[in-house]
C-alpha cells in the first residue's frame, strides 16, 4: 500500500532524568505525503521533532532518512537541515529585525558556506524565486517590510514560506494554525496541502478541525509511543484514543 518511506524512526527511546519522553517509538513517512500528528500535552510530539532534527540525541533506536537510507543520529542540526529536513517551530520564529525579503533570502536553497555567503550577489533567478514563494504564502506585497511588523498569522506564513524556500524533502510543522483567524487557517491548510504534493509534510496540531481539513493520515501519540494510526475517522473512533485524548 505504501511506497518506500523517506523518513523512518525505529524503536526510538529517550528519557530525561528517568522520565521517558519517547518510548520505543516507530514512525514512517513517504516522500510525498501529508501526515498529522496529534496527542495530548507531554505525548512526545515536540521531542520527536527534536530527535529528527538533531536537537536531542535518542538513548537508543535508529532514525533513517532518504534513499539509500542514511542515519541522522550522527549529524548536527545544520547538517540535517542541509540534507533536506526543514522545521517550523511552535512559536513563530522569524528574524524580526530584518525585512521579509532578507528572511526569504537567508532561507533560499543556496550554499551555506560562509565564504559563498560573504561573496553572494543577488541574482535575478533568486529574486524571482523569492517573489514566487512570497506569492505562494501571500506575502508578495510585504517583501520590503520589517518582519517584526507583520501580524501573527503573516509571521506563521513567512516561516512556512522560509521552510519552502529551503526546498526540503521533509517538512516538520509544529502547530501552524495556532492563533490564526479562520480565513488564515484556510490559507494555511492550502499551503500545506500544496506542499505535500511534492514532499513529505508532518503537521503537529491540537486543533481537530484543522486536522480534519488536512484530509490525511493521522498518527496519535501517547506517552511517547504511537497509540493509533489511520484516517481521521478511524482514529477518532478508536476506543483508546477517545480514552486518553478526545474523551476529555
Amino acid at each position: 500500500m505504501q511506497e518506500a518511506s523517506l523518513l523512518e524512526l525505529e524503536g526510538v527511546s529517550v528519557s530525561f532524568d528517568g522520565f521517558k519522553a519517547i518510548n520505543n517509538l516507530s514512525f514512517q513517512i513517504g516522500s510525498a505525503e501529508l501526515r498529522a500528528i496529534i496527542g495530548p500535552n507531554g505525548a512526545g510530539k515536540t521531542t520527536m521533532m527534536d530527535i529528527i532534527t538533531g536537537k536531542t540525541k535518542p538513548d537508543n533506536g535508529s532514525v533513517l532518512y532518504g534513499t539509500p537510507a542514511k542515519s541522522l543520529l550522527r549529524l548536527s542540526e545544520s547538517q540535517i537541515a542541509r540534507i533536506g529536513i526543514g522545521r517550523k517551530f511552535q512559536r513563530p520564529t522569524v528574524f524580526e529585525n530584518q525585512s521579509v525579503f532578507d528572511n526569504f533570502l537567508m532561507a533560499l536553497k543556496k550554499s551555506r558556506s560562509p565564504l559563498d555567503v560573504l561573496f553572494y550577489r543577488l541574482e535575478n533567478t533568486d529574486l524571482e524565486r523569492v517573489k514566487v514563494l512570497a506569492e505562494e504564502v501571500g506575502l508578495h506585497e510585504q517583501l520590503e517590510r520589517t518582519s517584526g511588523e507583520l501580524s501573527h498569522g503573516q509571521k506563521q506564513w513567512l516561516e512556512i514560506g522560509m521552510l519552502l524556500a529551503q526546498d526540503p524533502k521533509v517538512l516538520l510543522v509544529d502547530e501552524p494554525a495556532a492563533g490564526m483567524t479562520p480565513q488564515e487557517r484556510m490559507h494555511t491548510t492550502n499551503i500545506l496541502k500544496k506542499a505535500a504534493q511534492t514532499r513529505a509534510v508532518v503537521v503537529v496540531e491540537h486543533d481537530m478541525e484543522f486536522v480534519r481539513r488536512l484530509e490525511c493520515r493521522v498518527t496519535v501519540l501517547h506517552e511517547g509511543s504511537v497509540l493509533a494510526e489511520g484516517s481521521i475517522d478511524h482514529v477518532t473512533n478508536d476506543e483508546s484514543v477517545i480514552d486518553v485524548y478526545l474523551g476529555r
Binding site: T53, S76, S78, G86, R112
Partner: peptide, 10 residues
C-alpha cells in the same frame, strides 16, 4: 537555534 535549522553552521 533558528539559524541552525536553516542549515547554517552557526
Amino acid at each position: 537555534t533558528r539559524v541552525r535549522y536553516l542549515g547554517y553552521t552557526v
